[in-house]
Structure formats: structure tokens, C-alpha cells
Computed example of a mutant assay.
Amino acid sequence: MLGIDVVTRRLYEAPPDGFVAARAAAIEDARKAGDRDAAKRLAALKKPTVAAWVVNLVALRRPELIEELVQLATALRAAQRELRGDELRELSTQRRKFVSSLVDAARRLAVEESGAGAAKLPLGDVEATFTAALADPEIAGQVRSGRLIRAVSYAGFGEVPRPRLRLVTDADADADVGPEPEPSAETAAPEPSQPRQTARERAAEERRRREKDLRRRELERDLNTARADERRADGRLEKAEEAEREAGHLVEDLDAELAELERRRTEAVADVARRKLARRTAERDAAAARRRVGDVQAALDELEPP
């Protein structure tokens, strides 16, 4: 049997329409070889979507492109954290060109591997996945593994500085703004027909903007928390599925053992029947022999003189 890593690579390289049958055959080979651990690990592998398979092809066949993606992602995050505007704009342009080249490479590999036309490939999902990998190191790691099972997307890009905010009250706003200055004669003349925004109105507008920003930050934190909860839930689900598979394999093993015991029992019952028949035959032979002995002894007694 081939090594587990080689088998896994072949499963994720091949078009996904044959994944389930190929996985089942690999599991059967592992069981025949007595490698239950390999069979269990193979059973845990999940079928990829078409988009994930296309991304996996790039990771497995052109790993140097994925390494370049990781390097570009690192440079983008560094430029954004340090707010280097010119460099960030240049890297963003490079990012768009690089993602396009990745999608083109993925398209060519998928067409060569499956023979399907490019029009049938979900290249939009493929592009979204590569873009997400540039923004999120965790997604980049999944892409690099070559075992992605579904396409991913990313709502934002890069890391955004998070300023410290506090809720501003009316009193704070009035104190910050101060008394409204009197208009000069030069500025008063052109403004009689245009209502001027008061300091309180400006403060209220600023307060609403800050509250909106604060609410956005809170929702972003909630979203990050929800995503973390989702990842943990997915982890628990995977463990539960693995435990279920292990229990199923145990039942299969016990069923096989029971079948073997039933076969041996049937053979033992047949052997008992044969031995019983042999015993009865021996009993008949012994009885016949005893009768023969009696007959011979009687004949001898008749030959003796009185």
C-alpha cells in the first residue's frame, strides 16, 4: 500500500466527482493491509468542492506560486500596519495582478486535469479564495496545505488600526466646541440666505458619527468572536464525526468477529455431529463384537465333554 500522504495527495489532485469512490477504495486497501490508523485517517478526509479542488491543484502542482502569495500577504500586512501609503498602493496593484495570474494558472491546471472547459469552472470562487488567503494568514495556511474542502472569502482586506473610542455626551460636545463665534461683517453679508449650522448641531453630528464608528467596531469584534465560535464549533463537529466513524469501524470489526465466530460454531456443530455418528457406529461395532464373543464362547462350551 502507498503511504498515507501520497494517497491523500492523489485524492485531492483528482477531480472531486471521483473522490468518494477513490477514498472508499483507499480505505479498503488500508484495512486489507491491517493499517487501521491509515483507514481511520482516510475516512476523515472530506470531499472538496470544485472551486476548492482547483485551488488545491495550484498548491500541489505549483507550490512556488503559493509561497509567493504568502510573501506578498506578509508585505501587505506590514505596509498596512505601518500605514505606508505609497508602498501599500504599489503592493495593492501587485496583488490584483498576482491574483489574476494565480486564477489563470489554476484554470490551465484544471482544464488539463479534467478535460472540462474553463466555462464550467467556478473561477470567481477561486479568485475570492486567493484574495482571502492574501488577507488572512489562517486561510493562507489552508490553501498551502492543498487540502482545502470549500472556497472561502474575506469581507475586508488587511489589518485596520483600531482607535480607542468613548461615547461623547452633549456636555462634552458643548465643552469641546466652546461658544459660537460672532460672524464678521464680511462673512455675514453673503450668508443671510443660507442657514448656518450651530455648534450644537455640529457636535450632535460628530457625536452620531463617533457612535456609529463605535458601533461598527463593536460589530466587528462580535463578528470576530462569532467566527471564532464557528471555528470551535466546526472543530467539535469534526471530532464528533471522527468519533462516530471510529464507533462505526468498531461495529464493523465486531460484526466481522461475530461472523467468524458463527462460522467456527457451525463447523464445531458439524464436527460434534460427525463424532456422535462415529460413537454410535463404534457402539454398534462393540455390541456386535460382544455378541460374536458370546457366540464363540457358547460354541466352545458345547465341544467340551460332560
Rank of each mutant, 00 (worst) to 15 (best):
E68D: 14
E68T: 11
V70E: 05
Q71F: 04
Q71V: 07
Q71Y: 02
L72R: 07
A73S: 12
A73Y: 03
T74H: 13
A78I: 05
A79D: 12
Q80R: 10
E82Q: 09
L83V: 15
G85V: 08
D86V: 05
D86Y: 03
L88T: 12
L88Y: 14
L88R: 15
R89C: 02
R89E: 05
L91M: 09
S92G: 05
S92V: 03
S92D: 11
T93K: 06
T93L: 04
Q94A: 07
R95Q: 15
R95W: 06
R96G: 14
K97R: 15
V99K: 08
V99A: 10
S101Q: 13
L102C: 09
D104Q: 15
A106G: 06
A106T: 05
A106L: 05
A106E: 06
R107W: 10
R107S: 11
R108S: 02
R108M: 04
L109G: 03
L109A: 03
L109I: 07
A110R: 07
A110F: 11
V111G: 00
V111Y: 02
V111R: 04
E112K: 14
E112H: 08
S114Q: 02
G115H: 03
G115E: 04
G117M: 02
G117W: 04
A118M: 12
A118V: 14
A118D: 13
A119Q: 14
K120F: 00
L121D: 02
P122M: 08
L123V: 07
L123R: 00
G124H: 01
G124L: 03
D125W: 09
D125V: 06
V126D: 07
V126R: 03
A128Q: 10
A128R: 03
T129L: 10
T131L: 07
T131M: 08
A133K: 02
A133D: 00
A133W: 00
A133P: 00
A135Q: 03
A135V: 02
A135K: 00
P137Y: 13
P137L: 08
I139Q: 11
I139S: 01
G141S: 14
G141C: 09
V143G: 07
V143A: 09
R144D: 11
R144A: 15
R144G: 06
S145I: 15
S145R: 14
S145D: 15
S145H: 12
G146A: 05
R147E: 14
R147S: 13
R147P: 12
L148S: 14
R150T: 08
R150Q: 11
V152P: 01
S153H: 00
S153I: 00
S153F: 00
Y154C: 04
A155S: 12
G156N: 05
G158Y: 13
G158L: 11
E159M: 06
V160M: 08
P161E: 13
P163S: 13
P163K: 07
R164C: 09
R164V: 14
R164L: 14
L165W: 06
L167E: 01
V168E: 02
T169W: 05
T169G: 14
D170G: 08
A171N: 02
D172V: 01
A173Y: 01
D174L: 05
A175R: 15
A175W: 13
V177L: 13
P179R: 08
P179N: 01
P179D: 09
P179Y: 04
E180T: 04
E182N: 06
P183W: 01
P183A: 05
S184C: 07
S184G: 15
S184V: 07
A185G: 13
E186H: 06
E186G: 03
E186K: 06
E186L: 11
T187H: 05
A188N: 08
A188Q: 10
